[in-house]
Structures are given as C-alpha cells and as structure tokens.
C-alpha cells in the first residue's frame, strides 16, 4: 500500500511536471517579427520582388505584412481573409485557402512546424520511413475531401521540417515547399528560406521567400502585432 502511494505521488508529480513544462514551452514563444523578401514571377512572366517586415502574434492570430517595396502598404491576414490597407484605409480584401493558424509563423511559435500542422488540419498519418538521412511521412486528407485533395508527403531532417510535396488526387505532384537554413534563437527554430515550386503544364514556377533580422517576443511595434484593421 505504501509503495502504491509512493508510485501514485511520483506519477502525479511527473504528470504535473509534464503539464507545467508544456505550458512553459507553449508560452515561451508568442510573437515573431522578421524582415522578408519574396521573389516570384507573375502570370505574365514579369519578375517581382516584394520586401517588408512581417509581424505575427499567436494571440491576435493576424499575419501583418508591412510592405515597403515596391508599394508601401499593409497586408493583414486574419483567418482566410487578406485585408489590403494603404494610407490607413482598407482598399481591398482577398480570399486565401490557408488559415493564419496553419502559417509557418504560428506553427513555428507553438513548436508544431515539423509536420506542418497536418494532424490539426484533419490529415491522417499513413506511413513513416527514413531515406538518405530524411524522415519521410505520408499523410492522407480527410475522407470527405479525398475527391479534391491528394496526399501530402513530408520530410524532416534533424527534427526540422525539410520539405513538403503536395499531390493531387491522381497522385501528380502539384507543388513542393522546401524549408532551408534554419536559425535557432534561444531554442526557437525557424527557416530563413522557403522555396515554393509549383508545377503547371510541366513547368516549374519558383517563389522564394527569405527572412532576416528575426526578433522573437519583441516588445516594440505593439500596434503591428495587434494591428487594428481600419473600417474606413
């Protein structure tokens, strides 16, 4: 009986320790600021460069992109809506498919980037294996979405997300996302380059995003972390 009590106390202590350490970890990183540059080609083949500063706070759940070049404007993503703001006026809205909470910023801050949050998006882990130093997993979409969503293949290296391959339902590769040159700031790991390759009519289209001057848990620029979208 005494041994049982001792074991119970130990178990309770370990459970408490796990909960506390999880909470500390979850609260450890809550916001990120970074300079960014995005290089891509528009549908007309023009080469485009966008540069600015991005802010994200896991509490406000808004991706705020303060673009400086070529156009000074602010783009805010909340849920799946993009708000385009110039001179403190809302001039347009757009739709996007990816939730802000499945963005690289949110996932990195909560320490869930290694499988790109696919488990939370309803995907199911199918297979797991290793090849040439990469841990490879395959993920199936939710049953009710299988008609229009294909499998997703994920690779990680040294516990860091390395790449994602998106397939359509007929198993054709439609896009690859590659995460490179991770930076470690007091235990916070973040890729400083994300290369997106999309395949259209057997052509490769590149989109390269680079991050620099990354600040974690910054206390300045409060107005951007909690950006208030103007109502005009």
């Amino acid at each position: 009986m005494a041994l049982f009590k001792k074991k119970s106390r130990l178990l309770a202590f370990l459970t408490l320790l796990t909960i506390v350490s999880f909470q500390i970890n979850a609260q450890q990183f809550h916001r990120i600021k970074s300079d960014y540059s995005i290089k891509y080609k528009d549908p007309q083949g023009n080469q485009i460069l966008q540069m600015g500063v991005v802010f994200y706070d896991i509490n406000s759940k808004k991706i705020v992109m303060k673009n400086g070049f070529p156009i000074r404007e602010i783009l805010v993503q909340k849920d799946t809506t993009i708000y385009q703001i110039r001179n403190e006026h809302l001039i347009a809205t757009s739709g996007t498919y990816a939730m802000a909470e499945l963005s690289v910023y949110h996932l990195a801050l909560i320490g869930d980037l290694n499988n790109y949050g696919l488990d939370k998006a309803g995907y199911t882990l199918d297979t797991l294996k290793s090849d040439k130093g990469l841990i490879l997993t395959t993920w199936s979409p939710p049953k009710n979405a299988k008609a229009y969503l294909g499998r997703i293949l994920v690779s990680s290296k040294d516990k860091q997300l390395f790449g994602i391959v998106f397939l359509d339902p007929s198993e054709k590769i439609i896009a690859k996302h590659l995460f490179r040159d991770y930076i470690n700031i007091d235990g916070f790991e973040f890729p400083t380059e994300i290369l997106v390759i999309t395949y259209e009519d057997d052509k490769e289209i590149f989109n390269l995003t680079k991050f620099s001057k990354i600040v974690i848990n910054g206390t300045d620029n409060e107005e951007y972390y909690n950006y208030k979208i103007p109502s005009n």
């Binding site: 995005i38 891509y40 528009d42 023009n46 485009i48 966008q50 600015g52 992109m65 673009n67 070529p70 156009i71 404007e73 783009l75 993009i82 385009q84 809302l90 001039i91 347009a92 809205t93 757009s94 739709g95 996007t96 005009n232």
Partner: peptide
Amino acid sequence: LSMASLYNNTEIM
C-alpha cells in the same frame, strides 16, 4: 504590383 496579387479573388472596394 501589390502583394495582394499573390492571393486569389481580390475585390477592390
């Protein structure tokens, strides 16, 4: 060119 050109369905108000 706005950053918004990266997204779909832009609706200018």
